[in-house]
Every structure is written in structure tokens, then in C-alpha cells.
Design a protein around this nucleic acid. Sequence first.
DNA 1: GCCAACGTTGGC
DNA 2: GCCAACGTTGGC
Length: 139
Amino acid sequence: MAHWLFKSEPDVWGWDAQVAKGAVGEQWDGVRNYQARNNMRAMKLGETAFFYHSRTGLEIVGIVEVCAEAHQDTTTDDTRWDCVDVRAVRPFQKPVTLQQIKAEPKLAKMILVNNSRLSVQPVTDEEWAIICEMGGTQP
DNA sequence: GCCAACGTTGGC
DNA sequence: GCCAACGTTGGC
């Protein structure tokens, strides 16, 4: 199973808001970038992803899972834009900061480090395992 | 709040 | 099809 990473500004949509949605989850709407959209289209039900707080958090705070595969983003009539639904799975015991990620040589290839502007991105199995360990949670 | 990096738009 | 202009993102 593939792994992913979602970014959001916590002021707009943060981990707490995601948790409040419970098992039903919520669509990851508002993405208006083809690369990010294509990544969401590639997601399969049950695949897991990191939840990253950008701009005012700069840390990975928990894990979400895909609970509905790609469908039309209902916040727009523009049929180009799809999104998946995600629900919170569990928080990290300890958030993993961008600084920590940058300080770990094995994570130097992460898109998060090299293309900070892509809001939905793939994560390799190795990166997934390392970051889960850093966050004190099961992969 | 600033500004570099990036993606998109639109005139030619 | 090119590329300058513009808008947005996100780390600092």
C-alpha cells in the first residue's frame, strides 16, 4: 500500500478539526493543483497518510486514512477538480517537525523538503517507517 | 510580513 | 508553442 502526505494550514483545517469529523471523515477539498489532484486520484481506500501543519505548525501531527476514493470536489462546479475523503486514525505521540526531517539524512529526498509547495505528495515506505518511529507511533 | 519558488494564464 | 506577468504558497 502506498503512503501519502497532506498539508494544511492549521488555521484553516487542522488536525483537531479532522479529529472532530470522526470516522465519517471529510473531503480534502480546495486542491487546485494538477499534481496534487493526480496524487489523490492514485489513492486507494484504506491507504494512510501523514497530516502536516504548514506555515504556523511546520510539523507532522498524525495519521489519516483514505475513506473514500477520488470524486468531484463539491466546493466547485469545475469538473477538473477531484478529492478524496480522509479520516483521522491516530495522532503522533510526539509531532515530527520539519527541522527534524531536514536534519535526518535519510529523509533528504522527501518532497516535503525539496518541493515545499506541493500540498498532496507521495511518501516512500522507508520514509513512512522512519517518521512513524520519530513520532512514536506504529507504522 | 517578506519574499523566493513555483504554477497558471494569456497575449503574441 | 513560447514566455512574461501574475497569483499563491509556505518557510523564514
